[in-house]
């Protein structure tokens, strides 16, 4: 078989179906930003060290900067642009605005996608480093310590952490876990 350096990929992004040819080197982040014009996911470090590029891939939060676009073939991706209907805000987004869970806003799309994925993980009973020592049948209660540990993959240099934690906890309490 002849080796090609480009590959055709098909994926669903924010409910829209896309089929395109990509350079095998292209990351999912660059596919979203450069090919699809979805610039909500941000490139803060491009090496999996900041979390600004977080998107949901088949409903799990992942770092799009370390995901090759070719490897994301046949997946369903949700970016921050796809979390709510046009002109509306999802509860977590509304809480971020009202409680001022951001300042410059650059890490925010990643924080919000991460929070959505994290609350689903918690609802599924997944442990964190804070609670893994507990009995496996116990669903860990979501408190500040839990949220901080589970959100630690999203750096915020503006230091909006306390407001982010508040927004996540409030959303979890209001929505019974769904962000």
């Amino acid at each position: 078989m002849i080796d090609h350096t480009r590959t055709d990929v098909s994926l669903r992004v924010n409910e829209a179906f896309h089929r395109l040819s990509v350079d095998n080197r292209r990351t999912l982040l660059d596919l979203l930003r450069e090919d699809l014009g979805l610039t909500g996911p941000k490139k803060g470090c491009d090496h999996g060290q900041c979390g600004a590029c977080t998107v949901l891939c088949d409903d799990r939060r992942v770092l799009s900067c370390l995901t090759l676009a070719v490897a994301a073939d046949a997946t369903a991706v949700t970016t921050v642009e796809g979390l709510a209907a046009e002109g509306e805000l999802r509860p977590i987004q509304e809480a971020f605005v009202r409680l001022d869970g951001f300042q410059c806003g650059f890490c925010t799309p990643g924080q919000i996608c991460s929070a959505v994925g994290m609350l689903a993980e918690h609802a599924a009973g997944w442990p964190s480093a804070v609670t893994a020592g507990d009995a496996p049948d116990r669903v860990p209660e979501l408190d500040e310590t839990e949220v901080r540990e589970r959100m630690s993959g999203n750096l915020c240099r503006c230091g909006a952490y306390p407001s982010i934690v508040r927004a996540v906890l409030e959303t979890a309490a209001r929505q019974g876990g769904a962000a």
Partner: peptide, 11 residues
């Protein structure tokens, strides 16, 4: 704020 939480703010 709404632009920043929906990814619409352009940097």
């Amino acid at each position: 704020g709404p632009l920043k939480v929906t990814g619409a703010a352009r940097y």
